[in-house]
Design a protein around this nucleic acid. Sequence first.
DNA 1: GGTTATTGATTACAGGTGTAATCTTTACTG
DNA 2: CAGTAAAGATTACACCTGTAATCAATAACC
Lengths: 125, 125
Amino acid sequence: MSIRVSEAEKNVMDILWQESPLTSTEVVERLQTQDWSEKTVKTFLNRLVKKGVVTFQKDGRRYLYSPAIERDEFLADESESFLDKVFKGNIKELLATFVDNKQLSKDELDYLKGLLADKESKDVK
Amino acid sequence: MSIRVSEAEKNVMDILWQESPLTSTEVVERLQTQDWSEKTVKTFLNRLVKKGVVTFQKDGRRYLYSPAIERDEFLADESESFLDKVFKGNIKELLATFVDNKQLSKDELDYLKGLLADKESKDVK
DNA sequence: GGTTATTGATTACAGGTGTAATCTTTACTG
DNA sequence: CAGTAAAGATTACACCTGTAATCAATAACC
């Protein structure tokens, strides 16, 4: 039962993961790039609260919003579900698609090799 | 402008990518696992045709359906858009999530290392 | 050739999403 | 203290999606 956060709502989550708590006005400010009306952003905050993935504390007449779920956990969830839905769980194919299709820079390649080396030294299995 | 295929519709595409052309009845048969009514599957075929990702030739009163897009192209598209939407384009973070979070088997690890080695020998850049 | 069974087309309908506008409450301002 | 402005709550509305049922056309059977 993966967490249900829509595309547009994800942008709001990203803001809150960067910094929190924030008032709705502050969230709106940090979302200038998307050109959403302030009303739209407020709708998203509302929906996110209802979905239980954002919380708030009252501060007078306004709310201070914070994420109620961990970014890492969320990414892991989304990744898992993407793998299942698009690649039917075939992680080799997924990795091949990303490694082949994206022009990986030398930096990124090295990083990935680092990940693997790391993994190998830890997993004795 | 990524290709717009919904979750449920993807299952139909997968069938057609495995084998085509197929009649609607054959598609329904191959989707036993999902327990969808035959009507539902037909709706999906219809929508996919309207979306331009499936085509058909008439064969008497019935249609023979085939995919109108390549699976590889589709996967690349979906992957790109997943990377952007969920990881905001940060491929290192994406790879780290998959490599860390999934228990990669020795086989899968080796495969990935192979991919990288391959990549390295080709990309002289 | 008329009836039937099947296939595709059209219609249905609730819940989610993008995108707001309007309503209501309440903290501040004069 | 009355009025206003700002914040959150409620309502709106069209399009997409999941999930079918019904309608219409036509190939096949008797």
